[in-house]
Design a protein around this nucleic acid. Sequence first.
DNA 1: TCAAAAGTGTTAGGCTTACACCCATGC
DNA 2: GCATGGGTGTAAGCCTAACACTTTTGA
Lengths: 226, 226
Amino acid sequence: MNQSKSYRYPYPHPAVTTDVALFTIRGEALSILLIRRGNPPYRGMWALPGGFLDIGEDLETCAKRELREETGIEGVYLEQLYTFGKPERDPRERVISIAYFALTRSDRLKLKAASDATRAVWFPVGQLPELAFDHANIIQSARRRLLAKLSYSMIAFQMLPNHFTLSQLQTVHEILLNGHLDKRNFRKAILARGIIKETGEFSQNGSHRPAKTYAAVNPTRVEIIK
Amino acid sequence: MNQSKSYRYPYPHPAVTTDVALFTIRGEALSILLIRRGNPPYRGMWALPGGFLDIGEDLETCAKRELREETGIEGVYLEQLYTFGKPERDPRERVISIAYFALTRSDRLKLKAASDATRAVWFPVGQLPELAFDHANIIQSARRRLLAKLSYSMIAFQMLPNHFTLSQLQTVHEILLNGHLDKRNFRKAILARGIIKETGEFSQNGSHRPAKTYAAVNPTRVEIIK
DNA sequence: TCAAAAGTGTTAGGCTTACACCCATGC
DNA sequence: GCATGGGTGTAAGCCTAACACTTTTGA
């Protein structure tokens, strides 16, 4: 290593990465975006999109940047999940990873075809491949977070287009909760919270009555308190 | 810097610290433990107990170690809170801090008098001094976490002795919520959850009827899901 | 016997849940 | 006109919140 290209510290420093657990609904399944690793360690295995923090870069910026560089996806709902730092979690050196939890509409991935496609793939969470590092743990934490938030925030429409029908929203909840919901009660509960409003437009979607479409009242993030 | 005492990396690495927001109830006030800084930066100002991660040391171990070294306190309830990493949060170099949330009985600090006392002091959260770094932010997050957990976990008895009376527990809740609670409803709610049980012993505490004492059913931590 | 905190049930109102039929459209 | 999903109200039960008096002790 050329000395001019190395960085010195009076005591050892860990490396810092961010990793993103990005969920969407595809077909009828909750799915997560994984990247096939092209380099060691764990070459050829699947991992969460993520990478090393640039010195001087904000943590969340790093998470968004790595997601964009590796998948082309931007503009997702993103929040910090948990920091994973077991000493042996990366065989190269000590690596601390700040994991992020993210949601998006599945059609966002199409933006990406430009770059090196086929390396970023959606996997249904029930059919995950073997994962690099401790990423299986991270995914488990992220799924718990998603379930927990569902009950007290209306986070699910982050996986739908800006305008959506109540049936679509209910379907997302049913997939996440893995169970059936009552249509009338679901609508009452959602509308009572005042977090979505009618757009005035309708969705025509086949040979049946058109559905009113709704949009989030404030599309800002919902802060999470553990 | 002597080369034999320096560590090199092919790209810049941030430093990593842990900080601990340790709460207790003292008198009638929620209080937090702060350390007076003896070295720059922010010399003479108050800060959360914490410090640099040893390479090879687990994150939680680091938080516990720093707490012990700086205050003598051990055996507290501890959980990860949030990771703070704004690029300018430490004037020396890029520092990522994994913040921990902790609770203890206030009599634990007495263990400490051995080491360099008078540097670790409990401050009521309503009367905080000026704080070093972004520690005011960390404390704000920690207080939000404490409030949020109170409603769905029975975390409050982490601030009481192993055996406690229901009146003591209610008082802690009232201090945290800053409001009065109904005695009968409080007891019903707590006992209905089955998370505390009678010890069979009584607390004699003045010229009035002795109170039954209770203990947590499982003294393990309550996992938090943001 | 008095003061001080411990202990104990019931009721009303609100919220949650269960449940079934008509509506608008395309074919 | 029929198949398909969209849209709507009510009643029972459960949970929450409000409320006051008796008990046990030490002084």
